[in-house]
Computed example of a mutant assay.
Amino acid sequence: MLIDNHNRVINYVRLAVTDRCNLRCNYCMPEEGIAFSDRKSLLSIDEMKRLCNILASRGVDKIRLTGGEPFVRKDVMQLIEHLSGLEGLREISITTNATLIGPYIEQLEEYGVHSVNVSLDAITPESFKRITRRDQFELVHENLMRLIESKIKVRINFIVLEGQNEEDIHHMLEFQRVHPVSVRFLEEMPFNGGSRNFKDLNWNHRKILEHIQKRYPSFEKLPAPLTSTSVNYKIPGHTGSFGIIPSFSRTFCGSCNRLRVTATGDLITCLYGKPVANLRDTLRSGLQDSFVEEALVRAVGSRAKDGFEAQDRFGSIFGSSMTSIGG
């Protein structure tokens, strides 16, 4: 079991399988993209399998595959198949932009994937194209509907972007009125790869909730695990639910149970901190698994209490892109 220096049990790892993405969302990176890592520096599928084995042996029972866009990586299904048979692993989840997932949905069901988070910040073709700089809304919508019809639990992650998609908030709530999905509205984070300056945040979690309440004055708060990053709600008569994730305000840090591993093997113990170790180098060194375990134990033994302490400790990382951090 992995227990940090604040007595928090770490049982959840977000593993980025690639730093590449086929969209160019304007809050994530410049239009020309960013300098992606050399392919040789990315963890191989076999290295990821070995790492996941080690993580599961130390009590990690939830692994979420992220990117970049996970399905840009052609061999990602080999990893998912491995995870489906990994003893001790309770939940396999994926975060995706849903452009490339279509051919794999039935297979993901067979492998027992628990949930898929679809990153979708627009519900109309026009706003989708404006934000992503790509004209693929119809494909995303088709794949989203197929996921909803599957046995996989579906969430939509919607980042509220000032001046870009506020008008879609209520449209998203109407979508979950008729479909069994959870729409989570996220505060914007400053990890945009230098695409623009990020001075402050107008649409924080309080303003998002107030905006929703003007149209839907009646809703109930839903119970959630202590480790949940979202505060979840149900509107009477709606099939789905909605939640708000204060990702910039960081009000959930006190119960954080997760680690991040980037596509190049960097271990990140807090989204607002810098890498504390590189697991790829240890995996490739020819050393036994125990050395990887030692690196994990050392890392969780000196975690920041919250994102603000991590930011103070490591300095600003706001010039990074979420696609390189690992979703």
Rank of each mutant, 00 (worst) to 15 (best):
N232L: 11
P236T: 04
L296H: 01
L209F: 08
L287R: 13
L271H: 12
H211V: 02
T262Y: 13
S249F: 01
R260V: 09
A295V: 09
D266A: 06
H205E: 00
P223V: 01
L201Y: 05
S228P: 09
S230C: 09
R258G: 03
P225S: 11
I268M: 12
C253G: 04
W203H: 02
T282M: 11
S247L: 10
A277E: 08
A295N: 00
I235R: 02
Q213L: 09
L259F: 08
A224H: 14
N202S: 09
T264W: 07
Y216M: 02
A295L: 07
V292L: 05
I268L: 15
P236H: 00
F248D: 06
L209R: 10
L296Q: 03
F219G: 02
Q213R: 12
E293D: 06
G237C: 00
R250C: 10
V276Q: 07
Q288Y: 06
D281E: 11
E294G: 10
G240E: 02
G286C: 12
I244Y: 00
S249N: 08
L271E: 01
C256Y: 03
H205R: 06
N257P: 02
P225L: 14
L201C: 06
S290Q: 12
T282H: 07
K214W: 02
K274V: 05
F242R: 09
I212R: 06
H238A: 15
K274C: 05
G254P: 15
L209P: 07
L201K: 03
S247E: 07
F291M: 11
I268C: 15
E210W: 05
F248P: 15
R258K: 15
K234M: 08
T251Y: 12
C256R: 11
T239M: 15
T227R: 15
S228E: 14
Q213C: 10
F219H: 13
C256N: 01
E293H: 10
E294W: 09
L226Q: 13
Y233Q: 12
S247V: 13
L279I: 07
N278C: 03
Q288V: 09
G243R: 06
G286Y: 07
L222F: 14
T269H: 13
G286V: 10
W203M: 04
H238F: 15
A263P: 03
C256T: 03
T264V: 12
I245G: 08
A295T: 07
S255D: 11
L259A: 06
Q288M: 07
P246Y: 10
I244V: 15
N232G: 04
I235Y: 01
G240K: 05
L283C: 08
F242P: 14
R260F: 04
I268A: 15
F219C: 09
G240N: 07
I245Y: 09
S218R: 12
P236A: 04
L209W: 05
G254I: 13
